[in-house]
């Protein structure tokens, strides 16, 4: 399509981005890999040395690790379930003719723009606080004892907060996909005598399949890295009850100063994320051809 000269220029124009991204990816990754084989504690810099897979051994056999992996999975799957199912329902609802549709839409997507530290703090204090929170007030209104949510159900609470943040994302994307559904197709199926349930199963759901996959993959990428919500609300506790993998790595690195152990955790997190990334990249790649 273009001349050699243009292509040469193009290479020079692309080079800066490629180079900085390459450095940004490869240097820290190699360092992380390197540290993960080292005994390296910032508090004991004298006791350093190559320890092969010792860090991985300690990290993987640490009961906290198993719990953190479990928590990570529960968090990711829980949020995905809530946001995808809720998102489909909300998208179906908002796709109907309603008065004030624009405003309703703005209200629904608003939580996505709230910074994670704010959402976490608002939920922690304004809603879930066992004395002054709205939930406590509601419980008392109905004569119940208020529940200390973050104490008794820390992981559930974090899941709920995160789901609230991501529900708008799922809704927005599914709604966009829904609106691209051919109006004729919907009407044709109505003419064919399909009721709503049949229409949903045979027409709408297949049409949404791709968007749902995209939502799941992108959310998974972000949800695997959930940090601020835990940092602000529970600090991973009580115990390790709400510690996920990123938070565990953070604790190892910046609170326990165990660089080697934290790096091993980081490598494990990279491996997990890559498994998801491969699928997402395939889907986006297919779209690039179209």
């Amino acid at each position: 399509m273009a001349t050699r000269q243009t292509r040469t220029l193009a290479r020079f124009m692309m080079a800066p981005s490629v180079i900085i991204l390459f450095v940004w990816m490869i240097v820290p990754l190699v360092l992380t890999l390197w540290y993960s084989f080292q005994r390296y504690n910032l508090q004991h810099p004298d006791r350093a040395g190559f320890v092969w897979f010792r860090n991985y051994y300690f990290f993987l056999t640490d009961p906290a690790f198993v719990q953190a992996i479990g928590n990570t999975l529960i968090l990711v799957v829980g949020v995905l379930l809530i946001t995808v199912i809720g998102g489909v329902l909300l998208a179906l609802l908002l796709d109907q003719p309603i008065w004030g549709q624009g405003i309703v839409r703005l209200l629904v997507i608003a939580p996505f723009f709230v910074m994670p530290t704010v959402s976490a703090l608002v939920w922690k204090n304004m809603l879930m606080h066992p004395q002054y929170g709205i939930f406590a007030w509601l419980a008392q209104l109905f004569g119940q004892r208020p529940i200390p949510w973050l104490q008794d159900f820390p992981l559930f609470s974090v899941t709920l907060i995160t789901a609230w943040e991501w529900l708008p994302f799922a809704t927005l994307i599914l709604l966009t996909a829904l609106q691209s559904l051919d109006e004729d197709q919907k009407e044709a199926s109505e003419m064919d005598g399909a009721n709503f349930v049949n229409r949903f199963i045979y027409i709408i759901l297949p049409h949404l399949a791709r968007a749902i996959t995209v939502v799941i993959l992108i959310e998974t990428i972000f949800l695997l890295g959930i940090f601020a919500e835990i940092y602000v609300t529970t600090q991973g506790g009580p115990g390790y009850a709400s510690t996920n993998l990123p938070f565990l790595v953070y604790v190892q690195a910046l609170l326990n100063f165990d660089v080697g152990g934290a790096s091993a955790g980081g490598v494990i997190a990279v491996i997990l994320a890559n498994i998801v990334a491969i699928f997402l990249i395939r889907i986006v790649g297919k779209n690039l051809d179209a």
Binding site: S17, V18, L21, W24, M25, V27, P28, L29, L31, T32, Y35, I221, L224, G225, F227, L245, P246, V249, Y250, A253, L254, V259, A262, S263, G265, G266, V267, A269, V270, L272, A273, N274, V276, A277, L280, I281, V284
Partner: peptide, 19 residues
């Protein structure tokens, strides 16, 4: 480029912090 976006931040937290 897209794949670099998928790298979890914790994976590189330690070296970035030290650098």
């Amino acid at each position: 480029m897209l794949s670099t976006k998928m790298m979890p931040a914790v994976g590189v937290l330690v070296p970035i912090y030290l650098i």
